[in-house]
Design a protein around this nucleic acid. Sequence first.
DNA 1: GGCGTATGAATGAAGG
DNA 2: CCTTCATTCATACGCC
Lengths: 185, 185
Amino acid sequence: MDEGMSGFGLKPTRPAAAAAGGGGGAKCGRWNPTNEQVKVLTDLFRSGLRTPTTDQIQKISSQLSFYGKIESKNVFYWFQNHKARERQKRRRVYVENDHHLNHVPKQQHLVEVCETGRVVETLQLFPVNSLAFSDCDQSEKTKVFTSDECKENASPYTTIYTCGTEMENHYHHRHPSLDLRLSFM
Amino acid sequence: MDEGMSGFGLKPTRPAAAAAGGGGGAKCGRWNPTNEQVKVLTDLFRSGLRTPTTDQIQKISSQLSFYGKIESKNVFYWFQNHKARERQKRRRVYVENDHHLNHVPKQQHLVEVCETGRVVETLQLFPVNSLAFSDCDQSEKTKVFTSDECKENASPYTTIYTCGTEMENHYHHRHPSLDLRLSFM
DNA sequence: GGCGTATGAATGAAGG
DNA sequence: CCTTCATTCATACGCC
């Protein structure tokens, strides 16, 4: 986590509570990602992004800051954790199959989801649909997966996030069509 | 507790968990450890096992799978939670000590059983003697929590679980003498 | 039959 | 990168 993470405030000792703002979580000293944020991050991960560089992190963080309070370190940690747990999970769900016990057929879901390679992804990110539940997952994702390799390897790929102002314009949506365009390399 | 739901930061809301088992009666969705499983886990914990490695988790899970459905991650989470809550409980005591306590604590049994050095523990695991869900004696949960005072002792110890078919057995024990032998090191 | 507690599951945040 | 701690969410269970 160190390396090039000098400017993310990871080192400071316990920034303690920070009252939020951003109109969202505003609840504690711990980042509480919104669904939209998680969605974007997950999608980036699935696109093959594993360990974003400082620049990537800052960019992502900046774009995601629209959906709520977020810091660069949050993005950094998110990827760290997500990656680690993916591996961890794969490691845990796996074996016991090898063990030859008396019985226990046991179901083993072994899902390999390694999409790495050139990926050009374009998806609409609709802004917060105001108020509460806007669970509408109508996000049309046009994904072009070229998953041919399944190893940890970062091939040059490009992910383009384009957010159109799809919201039905309810209240204060001072959100200017988010245009998240990231280029990993 | 969770006031301040925020306008849009809705919680994950859990995807319904509709599955609810295929009508078999087993409430799938959350692991429900049997008394035997809990007993073994608790005993392992008492023996000094705090954070089993992946290998240990596999073994334990495999052995415990006899008593019912269990996955590796269940064992993993169990130890994580158990240790965390031991600590949490103790810390809460300090807090309540200074502050005017509100309610009577449940059980504040603190027994120091710091196993230092080599420990060889042998205990009997009585058979599950129950076919379906006829839990034998659930009303009487003999939960003996013994908080170990030793924090991070990496001293080599060995715990040997030997399930003899003798003991004050009951009736039909339809499992082949479970021989759970774990060696921590 | 609605709550309060116990606990499984998840994940953010660090440390090493 | 891997492991671990802490906090939180979700749910099963017991109580009134």
